[in-house]
């Protein structure tokens, strides 16, 4: 395995998916920092899909809007925000903010569980087949997974919403909800 950066064309279908979607893991959410102190949520408890000016104005977006984001693997509906200092064909978000309802001992109404989202739904679980037909897991073999840079999507405005999709019911609480202190 080479430590050097590589470039390759995005896997699979890219026709009709003109925009690169990047994920970046927020440094304040790294598991090694602060032992998952609940107060880390106050730094970044909600994420947006950041849209460059070309897409923001071209799609007629306004503050409070959501967008339908589609890749060959799936579709999500997520809150968007304008970011001018961004490549005009790229959108991005903080990954790992979105949480399943009742996960992380959070209130089911926590913004992470209602408006928070992941791009994972848009990313194939498996890499393309090797010569022998085997398909490896689409995750970094060293670190597990942190971010993807080869995802292509298309984006359409859906107007104001109050929650991101897909939305799943709360999961059973293995750990009780955190205290009010």
């Amino acid at each position: 395995m080479s430590p050097l950066p590589v470039w390759y064309p995005p896997y699979g279908e890219t026709e009709g998916y003109p925009v690169h979607a990047l994920t970046q893991r927020p440094m304040d959410m790294y598991h090694s920092w602060g032992s998952q102190n609940a107060w880390l949520r106050q730094i970044r408890g909600k994420n947006f899909l950041y849209l460059p000016t070309k897409i923001w104005e071209g799609g007629g977006f306004a503050p409070g809007d959501y967008a339908r984001v589609t890749s060959p693997s799936g579709e999500i509906v997520v809150p968007v925000a304008h970011m001018a200092a961004l490549n005009e064909n790229t959108v991005w978000t903080w990954n790992a903010i979105g949480k399943r309802k009742a996960a992380w001992a959070l209130d089911a109404a926590a913004p992470e569980a209602v408006e928070g989202f992941l791009l994972n739904h848009l990313i194939s679980e498996l890499l393309p087949a090797k010569g022998d037909g085997h398909r490896y897991s689409n995750s970094d073999p060293v670190t597990g997974q942190a971010a993807w840079f080869d995802l292509k999507v298309r984006i359409a405005r859906v107007g104001p919403r109050d929650h991101a999709e897909p939305a799943f019911p709360p999961m059973p609480r293995v750990v009780p909800q955190g205290s009010q202190r």
Partner: peptide, 16 residues
């Protein structure tokens, strides 16, 4: 300590 209010809730706040 730098306290937090409703740290696991829908609208957490605290001292920084």
């Amino acid at each position: 300590p730098l306290s937090d209010q409703n740290p696991y809730g829908a609208d957490p706040s605290g001292t920084f």
